[in-house]
Design a protein around this nucleic acid. Structure first.
Lengths: 350, 350
DNA sequence: CAAGAAATTGGAACCGTTCCCACGAAAAAA
DNA sequence: TTTTTTCGTGGGAACGGTTCCAATTTCTTG
């Protein structure tokens, strides 16, 4: 009665048998007499025995648990990916613990060390916007803990990852804006540290080029993804001598915050300025007018990343991606056209 | 070189000292010679030593980690509470792992056992809509692991919890609807299993009673919080011989889904039917027209729950809530009035 | 019925860390 | 100088479970 929980030793003592036998009975080892097994299982149930995963993980160095690290989860993007991951992992008998970094590099490093020190069997990661040093990721690899990245992938690391074609999607989005007759397309880009930022901007640039629209540096701003900055930058755009007639935003929260500024200034969307976002957050369909955006298959991204991680974990000999090419899966996106880019007459009634 | 990570034994061997001394040096025990300490810390750094938390937790039966269990996180409510929890817990030096149940009772039970088997030091919980059996919670208590509930609190358990006054908030919300002249206020309630459902409904009923509006059972429906059901029930309301002129919804996603139905039927909000939600999700301000709703101090709820849990964990002698009253904190709500209940003329321009 | 095979069980090692106890050396007090 | 503290260190138990190996029991089979 010294501790509040039951151990196999308690059970062994009560039944007057050895803890080895109790362990065998509980884990379903075949070489246990039916009579004994039944006695053990019954007593375990009445004593509310529950296996101590710490002890087990400690001795076996594997925990049947994976971690998922996301930079934030106030938009629906990451939660929805997580649900996809849990889906596959639960079916495969793994537990999933979630770590949320609040876009803080410090949190990312400490959470990575937390997961490693708890001997998780694998980690799915999308890094923060502050992350420029990837030592904590290579540390995991050196420890033999498989990593799979999604969405935000460190571009100078050769790691398994699941992404969408940001370049192509951005290209299409901007081409759509040009297609409805816009010539002065602004771009609110994300932080330079994210590979998405660079690829989406390249898509933007190349779409302009293809359609013979000269690149105007005044219409492109990188920012840190905070709402205050969107407002400042969007006001700046609108105060230009010849303001933009369209905006391609790095993501939906950016687009929505920008739309607020446009509406506050009394301008009309899409007549005065058309807007396109990215990711098809839940809010994109709610905002007025409905936001045209690039839909990402979020749940599929999660499921695919989970399956990829399962493959990595099952590899008897750990794959060494310093010498061989890491697997990459690219999932399709889809441009969802809503009122924020629908020219008059074509607009759906609401 | 047999295993991929460094242990204190490796360090001890290399320096030709005992593992006890290494342990002391690493944990900052005062009785270690400065020279020795320096040597250990240096070697630990170059060997990338990292403490095995499993071993530590296993021997000390405490892990400096707390768990938080939420039923879902596709709305902004739970993520925002979690951020509040992390805020306080990180400052207090605790790690936070998040478990998401997808509103599944099974997940809840298995995640609870997962957290217990990993010896977390405490758990913050909001239970799923399916949860009717609370054995997995009492199990935690019997193990001596403190629990703090928020939002959804099991009502026949005496447990520390952080809530808002659902009754009062609902009462005010419905009174507001009556105040703008509505007589036929419908209520889309949640599942009977949630205490919020019952309290908000009681607030609804009492507000009607206070203003002499007879209760009409046709205008109240409980449902399971799935989007499909909202559509069916809302259509049902609108097809009544004398349909409602206002709706009080159990939460914002419900209100927003209901608004879709209203708009699809060509009815105007708020002219034909005014709508009030609950919780002030991020989407409440985005939807058109803006949704009147009861704001909850989500981050504060998280912070308060975290502080309450810290108190519970620090209690030398575990509080036994079978004999004494558990602490409860009730935080204030605020009715946010937006276009969905603004009668003509008063409506803000958009 | 005895010998060998198979089934069942007990004993002990192991996993990494902390912590208590003991011991010698050095420092302080007598 | 001798005694008492203090300091720094080493040794070993403990934590809970699995697993290998050996020992014991039970079952086959000649």
């Amino acid at each position: 009665m010294k501790s509040k929980y039951t151990t196999i030793i308690d059970i062994a003592r009560q039944l007057n048998i050895s803890k080895s036998t109790v362990s065998r009975a509980l884990t379903g080892h075949p070489n246990v007499k039916e009579h004994t097994r039944k006695a053990v299982l019954e007593l375990a149930a009445t004593m509310e025995y529950q296996r101590n995963s710490l002890a087990l993980g400690f001795s076996k160095h594997t925990t049947n648990t994976i971690g998922i690290m996301v930079p934030e989860f106030m938009s629906t993007y990451f939660p929805s990916v997580i649900v996809g991951v849990q889906d596959v992992m639960q079916a495969a008998g793994y537990n999933v613990v979630i770590c949320q970094q609040n876009e803080s590099y410090e949190s990312e490093v400490s959470n990575m060390k937390l997961l490693l020190s708890y001997c998780v069997d694998g980690i799915i990661v999308s890094h923060t916007k502050e992350t420029r040093n990837f030592d904590h990721f290579t540390l995991a690899q050196r420890r033999g803990v498989p990593l799979v990245f999604f969405n935000r992938v460190p571009d100078d690391m050769n790691v398994p990852n699941v992404v969408v074609n940001d370049y192509e999607a951005a290209f299409q989005a901007v081409e759509h804006l040009i297609g409805i007759g816009r010539k002065r397309v602004a771009h609110l880009a994300g932080p330079e540290s994210l590979v998405n930022t660079r690829q989406r901007r390249q898509g933007y640039l190349d779409a302009l080029k293809k359609h013979g629209i000269p690149y105007n540096p005044d219409l492109v701003l990188s920012y840190d993804l905070t709402t205050e900055k969107v407002k400042i930058y969007m006001k700046h755009f609108l105060d230009l001598e010849t303001p933009p007639d369209a905006l391609f935003a790095i993501n939906d929260p950016t687009a929505i915050a920008a739309m607020e500024v446009v509406k506050a200034k009394g301008l009309r969307i899409p007549e005065d300025i058309a807007v396109v976002g990215f990711s098809n957050d839940f809010s994109a369909q709610l905002v007025y007018p409905g936001l045209t955006t690039v839909a990402q298959p979020t749940a599929d991204i999660g499921r695919t990343a989970a399956e990829m991680l399962l493959t990595e974990m099952k590899a008897k000999v750990k794959n060494d991606y310093t010498i061989k090419k890491a697997p990459t899966v690219q999932l399709p996106t889809k441009l969802i056209i809503r009122e924020s880019t629908m020219i008059k007459g074509k607009a759906k009634k609401r």
